[in-house]
Computed example of a mutant assay.
Amino acid sequence: MGGRRRRRRCGGAREMLRVAEKYRATALTASPPVVVAMARWEEKIDLAALEFVTCGGAPLHEAAAHQFISRFPGVELRQGYGSTEGGGIARMIDREECLHLRSVGRLSQNVEAKIVDSVTGETLSIGQTGELWIRGPSIMIGYVGDEKANASTFAPSGWLKTGDLCYFNQDGFLFIVDRLKEMIKYKAYQVPPAELEHLLLSLPGVADAAVVPYPHEEAGQIPMAFIVRQPGNNLKEAEIMDFIAKQVAPYKKIRKVVFTSSIPKTASGKILRRQLRNHAIYSSMSRL
């Protein structure tokens, strides 16, 4: 899945890097797929003038960030976070901040934020995960003519509900855990796919991974992993399940694995989870 789309993205990355080399670019803005392509670039290219790359649009996995830094040790990899409704919410601005590879930086100027329990509405503290609410002069004031959307998006006092599960550390760095609507409902628990994907990408032999919910009669949903193996690797389903089971709570364990040639993603690198879910359910039904 997604082979043609991936080739087009790689072609775009190649052209961008050639232009950056020709004109001695000092700064680039890139989506995660382009950052990954840069890190894995095999051809000789001179980017000595490059000072920093700003990355956003989708999560950049820590393994990919390490690979980029190893390839371009003198280039700052600045991650950021924003949305259409909220504008620029957080970003990194210097080399020291760039060392926080799993973070998207600190809050931008004039942005106020808090972490809220999406069930109780309680404001949470440092290190606790909940929905990120934001407000400020750059935040949109509402959807025109859509009162239902406004009611579900905004809280009293002008807070905008981002729909993202996040937490802040003691130094004010923001960490994105997952999208609230992407959570897998296993019995009475919620399982964030991004957490499992991060662990899967640290397993030698895994080139790419995605986790989606799969219908289950007893549990409601179970975590299901789509895995792209590294060339020449022969990872087995049991190895992947055991690797995850040793690192997570029992309710977060991977309970089904599918091997595939590629993970479908948008141009910005966001996983097309609905496409994967539909593929898994359709394939299962066709075998009945």
Rank of each mutant, 00 (worst) to 15 (best):
E21T: 12
A27L: 11
T29Y: 03
E51Y: 05
A13H: 05
E51R: 06
T29A: 07
K44I: 04
F52S: 02
A25V: 10
W41Q: 02
L17S: 07
L50I: 07
L28E: 07
P32L: 04
W41G: 03
V53L: 07
L50S: 05
S31F: 15
P33D: 12
M16D: 10
A20K: 00
A48E: 11
R18M: 08
V34C: 08
E15A: 15
T54Y: 05
A49G: 03
A37M: 11
V19E: 12
R14H: 09
L50F: 08
L17F: 08
L47W: 02
A48S: 14
K44V: 08
L28P: 04
A27K: 04
T54N: 10
E51W: 11
R14N: 13
Y23K: 00
V36D: 06
E42W: 11
P32G: 10
A13R: 01
P33Y: 05
A49W: 12
A27P: 14
P32M: 08
M38F: 05
A13F: 05
L28R: 02
V35H: 01
Y23C: 11
A48K: 09
T29M: 06
A30L: 14
L28S: 00
A13T: 15
K22C: 12
K22Q: 15
L17T: 11
T54H: 01
A27Q: 14
T54L: 04
A20L: 09
A37G: 10
I45W: 14
T26M: 05
R24P: 00
A48R: 06
A13P: 04
R18H: 12
I45N: 12
R40E: 15
L47E: 02
K44D: 14
T26C: 05
A20S: 02
V53A: 04
T54I: 10
D46F: 13
F52Q: 02
R14V: 05
A49P: 07
S31V: 11
D46Y: 10
A20H: 00
E43R: 05
R14I: 09
P33I: 11
T54Q: 08
W41D: 02
R40K: 03
A30H: 03
M16V: 07
V35M: 04
P32S: 07
A13C: 13
V19C: 09
V19L: 12
